[in-house]
Write a protein that binds this DNA or RNA. Structure first.
Length: 492
RNA sequence: GGUCCUGUGGCCGAGUGGCUAGGCAGAGCUCUGCAAAAGCUCCUACUGCGGUUCGAAUCCGCACGGGACCUCCA
C-alpha cells in the first residue's frame, strides 16, 4: 500500500538511512515546539514549516502519522545555570501580568502564524504545565535507576555516570572529555557534582510563581524533561522520528536521549532530524541577535530590512526552494524571485485546469510523476520537487500553445499530480490576494470600468482606453489585457 | 581552542564520479492598437593548488574564505 521508499538523513548516524517505521503504517513524529514567552520569529516558523512538509508527505504516501508538537510553557530558564527566573516569569513581571497570561497570549499568536503559513495542526499539542505529573514520575524513575541525585530540592542528572554505559555525546559525535573541556569550572556555589549535569527538577525560590509540589519540595521541571515525558506518553518509549532545530541538537536533544535511556532502558528515537537555521544577510536570525523580524512585519513589509511585503504563500514557496538541512538566507532579491516563481507555478496550475485534451500525449507523464516522488523520497528534497514541477509547467504551457499534446486520461492524472504535490505536499495555497476581489463594491465598479474601456477599444478610441488604464495605475490598480478579457489587480 | 557544515553561473539554490537542475534577472522571439502580462528559446557555472581516476564541481590532501554548535534560542 505504501510503495515509496524514503531515505532520511539521521543525525544520530550522520548518514541517509532507509526509513522503516517501527510499526508501519503508523509513524510517530515528535517535534520540539516553541517556548511561548514572545512572538515567534521566522526562524521558528521555518522549522515548523519544514516538519509540516515532512508530515504532509508521509501522510500523502499513506502513512498514518501521529504528529506531536509540544508547547513549552514552563521551566525554560533564562541562563544556563539552572537557576534564576524562567522566561515566563521574567516576561510576566515586565508586562505586569500572570505568567500564564504570557503563555496564553503567545500560544494564540503562534497558532495564528502557523495557520497563516498553512501548516497543519499537530495531532496532539501537549503543554509542559499540563504534564507535571508525568515529568515528576519520570524523574523519580531516573533517580531510582541511579542516574540522578537530589541536592536541596533540585534533581540533577548525572552525566558522567550515564556516560560510563552510554554515549552521552552521540548525537553531536563528541566524547565526554571533549565536552568537558568546553565547560567552565564549577564554582563553590554550585550544587552540581559534574560540570555537564543538568536539572530534571528545580527547587523553586520563594519568589518563583510557577511552582508545583513534588517529592523534593515545591519546584518546577527542567527544560529537557518535558519532551522526554510527553513523547513517551503519546508516542511510546521508542518513537520513529524526533525533530527540531539544529540549535537544539547539542544540548536539548542530547539530554533528552540521556533521560529517556536512563528512565526506560532503551534509545528513545530511531531517526533524529534537524532543520537548519534561517539567516539574514548571512547571520543567524535569533532573538538574541536582534536581527529577526516577525512574520507580520514580513507580510506587511513594515521593517527596515524589507523593501516590501511578501505574501505568506510566497514565503512558504521561498522556504520550499531550499532543502531543510541547508541554511536559508533571507534577502529582498531572493524573496522577490520566489514571489514570481510562485506566481508562475500557480498560473500554470490554473492553465492546467483548462487544457484541451488530445487523443494521445506527446510526453511521458509517468516519468515526471516518478521524478516528483523520487525527489521527496530522497530526504524530502522539496527544491528538486519544485524543479520537476517546473518541468511540468513548461509542458502545461506548451500544451496550451498547441506545441505538445495531452490525452484526457493524462490530463486527469496531471491535475491530480499537481494538486497533490502543490497543495497536499508542499502545503501551498492560492494567495488570498483576493481580498480586493472579494470586495463586492470594488469589483462591481471595476467590471463597469473595464466594460467602458472595452467599448472604447472596440471603437478604436485608444486615448480613452489608455487614460483609463493609466489613471487606474496611479490608483495602484493595474490592468492586463489577456486573450480572455481584461484582468485587474490591486497592487500593494 | 574543540566538533561539524560549507564555498556552484549576475542573484537565490539543487546535485549523481562521465549525461539538462530549477527559480529570478538578462538577451532574442511570439502574442498585442500600444503597453503590461504571459509563453517559447538562449545564456553551461562549480574558491585556489595538488592527488586518485580512462574521466571529478562530485572522492582524498593542503590552503584560503564563509557559517553553525560548544552559553538562552527552531
Amino acid at each position: 500500500m505504501i510503495n515509496q521508499q524514503i531515505q532520511i538523513y539521521n543525525t544520530l548516524t550522520r548518514t541517509k538511512e532507509k526509513f522503516a517505521p517501527l510499526n508501519p503504517p503508523f509513524v510517530g513524529l515528535y517535534v520540539c515546539g516553541p517556548t511561548v514567552y514572545s512572538d515567534v520569529h521566522l526562524g521558528n516558523c521555518r522549522t515548523f514549516i519544514s516538519f509540516d512538509l515532512i508530515c504532509r508527505y508521509l501522510k500523502f504516501i499513506g502513512f498514518k502519522v501521529r504528529y506531536v508538537r509540544n508547547i513549552t510553557d514552563a521551566g525554560h530558564l533564562e541562563g544556563d545555570r539552572d537557576e534564576g527566573d524562567d522566561k515566563f516569569a521574567k516576561k510576566a513581571k515586565l508586562e505586569q501580568v500572570e505568567p500564564m497570561e504570557i503563555v496564553q497570549k503567545y500560544t494564540v499568536g503562534f497558532h495564528d502564524v502557523m495557520r497563516t503559513f498553512n501548516t497543519m495542526p499537530p495531532s496532539i499539542e501537549p503543554t509542559a504545565t499540563g504534564h507535571i505529573c508525568e515529568q515528576i514520575e519520570m524523574t523519580k524513575k531516573i533517580i531510582a535507576n541511579g542516574y540522578a541525585y537530589v541536592v536541596n530540592g533540585t534533581v540533577y542528572f548525572d552525566v558522567e555516570k550515564y556516560n560510563k554505559e552510554f554515549l552521552y555525546g552521540q548525537l553531536t559525535n563528541r566524547k565526554l572529555e571533549e565536552l568537558l573541556e568546553g565547560t567552565r569550572e564549577l564554582d563553590g556555589q554550585d550544587e552540581k557534582r559534574g560540570r555537564l549535569d543538568f536539572a530534571l527538577w528545580i527547587n523553586a525560590k520563594p519568589e518563583h510563581i510557577m511552582r508545583w509540589p513534588s517529592p523534593w519540595g515545591w519546584g518546577f521541571p527542567g527544560w529537557h524533561i518535558e519532551c522526554s515525558a510527553m513523547s513517551s506518553k503519546y508516542l511510546g518509549d521508542a518513537i520513529d522520528i524526533h525533530g527540531g532545530g539544529m540549535d537544539l541538537q547539542a544540548t536539548h536533544h542530547t539530554n533528552e536521549i540521556a533521560q529517556s535511556q536512563a528512565c526506560n532502558h532503551q534509545a528513545p528515537v530511531k531517526y533524529w532530524m534537524h532543520t537548519n537555521m534561517l539567516t539574514v544577510n548571512g547571520v543567524r536570525m535569533s532573538k538574541s541577535a536582534g536581527n529577526g523580524f516577525l512574520p507580520d512585519e514580513l507580510f506587511t513589509g513594515n521593517h527596515p530590512l524589507l523593501e516590501k511585503g511578501y505574501s505568506p504563500m510566497a514565503v512558504r514557496f521561498f522556504m520550499m526552494q531550499t532543502h531543510y538541512r541547508s541554511t536559508l538566507d533571507f534577502s529582498n532579491a531572493a524573496l522577490q524571485a520566489a514571489e514570481k516563481g510562485f506566481e508562475r507555478l500557480m498560473a500554470a496550475y490554473n492553465t492546467l485546469q483548462n487544457l484541451t485534451p488530445s487523443a494521445a500525449s506527446s510526453f511521458d507523464l509517468n516519468q515526471l510523476k516518478q521524478k516528483c516522488y523520487d525527489a521527496m523520497n530522497d530526504d524530502f528534497n522539496a527544491p528538486i520537487l519544485l524543479a520537476q514541477l517546473f518541468d511540468g509547467v513548461k509542458i502545461i504551457n506548451s500544451v496550451n500553445d498547441g506545441k505538445e499534446k495531452i490525452s484526457a486520461a493524462d490530463l486527469d492524472e496531471m491535475q491530480k499530480l499537481f494538486s497533490g504535490f502543490i497543495f497536499d505536499v508542499l502545503g501551498l495555497a492560492a494567495d488570498s490576494n483576493a481580498s480586493a476581489a472579494n470586495d463586492d463594491t470594488l469589483s462591481t465598479v471595476m467590471s463597469l470600468v473595464i466594460d467602458i474601456r472595452k467599448d472604447a477599444k472596440t471603437k478604436k478610441d485608444f486615448s480613452t482606453s489608455d487614460k483609463i488604464r493609466d489613471d487606474l495605475a496611479k490608483a495602484k490598480i493595474t490592468l492586463k489585457d489577456t486573450k480572455d478579457g481584461t484582468e485587474w489587480k490591486l497592487e500593494k
